[in-house]
Nucleic acid binder design. Structure first.
Lengths: 206, 206
DNA sequence: ATCAAATAAAGAAAAAAATCACGATTTACT
DNA sequence: AGTAAATCGTGATTTTTTTCTTTATTTGAT
C-alpha cells in the first residue's frame, strides 16, 4: 500500500496538507500550484509533480480542488490507519506530546504514558494514565502496541530502549539525542530536534 | 563561514556528533567509518564523504579521532556561535523546550518565554521568566533577539507570527502545524512533528 | 468568435546525492 | 620480513531529485 513515497516528497505533502486545512477553513475551494509554490518557496512544477503521485488531476487555468487534495494526501500518507503508541518518559516533552491532540487526527493514538518516578504514577494526562515502567511489558502484550515514543533523558535512553525491545516494541520514535543501538528487527526514527535547529541556524543565522 | 553544508549532510553530522559524545563518555578514542555506517544504517563511503567536508583526515586501518571529529562537527555546525531566542507560547511544548538544557550546549540560548494567559505570567521555568506577550516588542528591541520559537496553538499561529514580525523578529522556528505567511525578510523553519511521524509511519508500519 | 493569460501536464535536462569500486595505507599476525 | 585484513580516500557510476521547457487546455476579456 505504501506507494514508495520518497522522504522529501512526503515531507512536502504534510506541508501541502496544512495549507489545505487552512484553505478549507477559509472557505476556498481551489488552489493552484504557483500559489502553493510561492508560499513554500519552491518551484511550481515540483508541486505538480508531487500531486501527480497522488493521482489527483488538476484543471488548467483553475488549479486543484482543495478538498480532493486534502483527501488524497491523507490517503497517501495513511492518516486513516490508526497506530497505537505508548509514550515512554513523562517529563515535559512526554507530557507535551500526550496533550498534542493533533496526533489523533493524523492516526496516532496514544494509549498511555510511562515513567519510573513514583510521584508521577497514576496521574492522568489528557485522559491517558501514567504507569510505572515495570507495567509496560504486560501492557504491550495485552494491547498489542508496537510503537513507543521515547522521551526520556539521553543518559537513560539506550537502557530504556533495550527494555522496550525486550518487551517486544518494534518501532521507536526517538526524541532523545542518543543514537540508539537496536537489532535489525526494530526500526528507529530519530527526531533530532537539535539537528533540525542547527540546519536552520547554518542556513541563515550564520 | 557557513560552508554551504547541504541539509542532508548537516542532519547526518548531528547524528555523528551524538555518537562522538557517546564514544567519549565510553572512553573510546577512535572510530571507523564502517562502525558509524552500520550504526546508522547507511553506506560507509557516505560517512567518509561527509567527513571530507570537515577537513578531518582519518587514518587507514585505524579510523578517525573521536575528539577531533566532535570538535570539527561543532565548528562546522556553528555550535559555538550563541544565538539568543524567545519561546512564544508557554504551553506544554514551550515549557518542555524551555527545560531542554541541551539547547545551551548547542549554542541556543533561551532568554525568556511569552504567553497571553495571565495565570502563567511571572512563573519561572528553568530560570527563565514567562512574560505577557505584550512585553515582547520592547524586549526584542532591548535584547536584540532575532529568533523566536513558536509553540502556540495552530489557530493563533499566523496571528502571533504577524505580531512577531512586526516586533522585528527575523527567524521563526515553527513548531505549529500552520504554514506561516511571512515576508521574504523573515525566515521560517518548520519543525513539522506530524510530518516527521508520517514519514516514519509510511516507511514501515504500513 | 477570437485572443491573451494562467495553468496543468509531461518530457528533457540539470543538479544533487548516494553507492560502488578500486587503489593506497596501515596494522596485526605469522 | 612478508602477508592478510581493515580502512581510508577518491574517482566513476548510478540513482534520485529538482528545475527547465514546451505543449495543451481552460477561462475571461475584447
Amino acid at each position: 500500500m505504501s506507494k514508495n513515497i520518497p522522504e522529501k516528497v512526503s515531507n512536502r505533502l504534510t506541508l501541502y496538507h496544512s495549507i489545505m486545512v487552512e484553505y478549507i477553513e477559509a472557505g476556498i475551494d481551489t488552489i493552484s500550484s504557483p500559489q502553493i509554490a510561492q508560499r513554500l518557496g519552491i518551484d511550481d512544477s515540483q508541486v505538480r509533480k508531487d500531486f501527480k503521485l497522488l493521482n489527483n488531476a488538476g484543471k488548467c487555468r483553475v488549479g486543484y480542488m482543495v478538498k480532493d487534495l486534502k483527501d488524497s494526501i491523507e490517503k497517501t500518507l495513511g492518516f486513516s490507519k490508526t497506530k497505537d503508541a505508548f509514550i515512554v518518559g513523562s517529563g515535559h516533552l512526554g507530557l507535551a506530546l500526550a496533550k498534542y491532540d493533533s496526533f489523533n487526527s493524523y492516526g496516532l493514538n496514544i494509549l498511555a504514558l510511562f515513567d519510573n518516578d513514583p510521584q508521577k504514577i497514576d496521574i492522568q494526562v489528557n485522559n491517558k494514565q501514567i504507569f510505572h515502567i515495570s507495567k509496560l511489558p504486560n501492557l504491550v502484550q495485552r494491547l498489542g502496541v508496537e510503537l513507543a515514543i521515547l522521551t526520556v533523558p539521553r543518559q537513560s535512553a539506550q537502557q530504556v530502549a533495550d527494555f522496550l525491545i525486550q518487551s517486544n516494541i518494534k518501532y521507536i520514535w526517538n526524541f532523545t539525542p542518543a543514537v540508539l543501538k537496536v537489532p535489525p528487527t526494530v526500526k528507529v526514527w530519530n527526531e533530532n530536534l537539535m539537528g533540525s535547529f542547527l540546519q536552520f541556524a547554518c542556513k541563515d543565522i550564520v
